[in-house]
Amino acid sequence: MHHPLSICTFVRSESLAQSLRDSLCSESPKEAIAVEHRYLLNQISSLPELFDWVEQYKQQIDCLVLQEDSSLRPLVNRLYEQGILLPVVILSGVADEASQGATTLEGQNLPRTAPNSTQALETYIYHPGEVYVAATEADKIARLIEQAIAQFLTLAPTCLLPDRSITVDPITELHTQNFLMLQQRRLSEKLKERLGYLGVYYKRNPQSFFRYLSRTEKQELLQQLRAEYRKIVLSYFSTESTLNQIIDQFVTTAFFADLSVSQIVEIHMELMDDFSKKLKLEGRSEEVLLDYRLTLIDVIAHLCEMYRRSIPRES
């Protein structure tokens, strides 16, 4: 069963609008049927129409795609006033007959940092999870939408407004936080239904990736993984009923740490070396260790399958 993503675009440039249609839809512009039914596309070119559409379907919109021009600030302010936060891709640097005369925010020297930065307030236009790219990247819109949703799912309920001049009363602020959490829950569940493990993939925190950990944290994680892998090996050829659970636990830990297959192989070889030394001391043959290649293959297969089913696919 397909669960298409509902995409709403607001761009004044017809060439840009056409590029988005070509990237997301296989049918004529009037049709809302997308490639493999992956997207439901609604393209809007009028600001009042957009306000009405967002207000009416705010709980069904999965991502906004906006063109950066003079109308963007008023639009963002209106969304804040209504307590609406949605995943968004902002396309900048549009220059054609449809957008001439529009003052872009890019020309105002707005500071830009990586998404989810908490260092400064004015580092984004709508919210810290937005995806801000040049309009020349419009042909990659499917991947950009996936990225926007992924970053939106990591937003904290207390994410700050980028414009200090905007005043939001406590009731609206509370409504915004509730709306954000509801949207995140809805999107997460939709992605799980639509793309299997993809909802889990989006919940991974890059700060927890092995390569970004401190030396002490890396040692602690490797120690934990070695202990779990040792349990797997010791019970692999037994009738232990919890073996699959132990393997799942190990694979999940490795997955959320973005561990590579080569690192899993290294953990296996280190353990086999330890067993080999003990067998030699006991005067026993090491050939029994060859059977545990099946353990390594099994674990790697589980990990690779989890990565395969979880990583967003190219459109």
Rank of each mutant, 00 (worst) to 15 (best):
G83S: 10
R38D: 12
V265K: 15
Y197V: 03
C159R: 01
I300E: 09
S208P: 02
K192W: 00
L222P: 08
A17C: 02
Y132N: 01
L198M: 13
V299I: 08
L271R: 10
E14V: 11
L155T: 00
T136L: 13
P162K: 05
L79W: 01
T216Y: 06
T158V: 13
A98K: 03
Y132E: 00
S45F: 06
E314L: 05
Q219L: 11
K140P: 06
Y307D: 13
Q82H: 11
E130G: 06
G283N: 05
L16P: 05
K277Y: 06
M269E: 15
Q219W: 06
N109H: 07
P157C: 11
A114N: 00
A142E: 12
I311A: 10
Q100C: 04
V261I: 12
I145R: 11
S99C: 15
G93T: 00
I44R: 00
E14N: 09
P170C: 04
Q82K: 14
L234P: 00
A227Y: 12
E122V: 11
Y57A: 03
L50V: 11
Q100T: 10
L182I: 01
V35N: 02
R313M: 09
A156H: 01
L121C: 08
Q119E: 10
S99F: 03
G107T: 04
K218Q: 15
P115M: 03
H302T: 04
V76K: 01
Y197F: 11
E146N: 15
C25M: 15
D69E: 08
P74Q: 09
T216M: 11
V265I: 14
Y132C: 04
L144I: 04
Y197R: 07
A98C: 13
N77D: 11
E130C: 05
L155D: 00
Q177F: 02
R204L: 09
Q60I: 02
K231W: 08
L110M: 15
G83C: 10
S13N: 10
F51S: 04
M181H: 09
L234K: 08
E36P: 02
Y124P: 00
Q119P: 00
E305V: 07
R211K: 09
N178R: 15
K190A: 14
T172E: 06
Y229G: 08
Q151N: 03
L290G: 07
D298R: 11
A148I: 01
R194L: 00
A135I: 06
V265C: 11
A135D: 08
S26C: 12
E228T: 02
R211W: 05
L259D: 03
L40I: 15
A34I: 06
L281R: 13
R186F: 01
L271V: 02
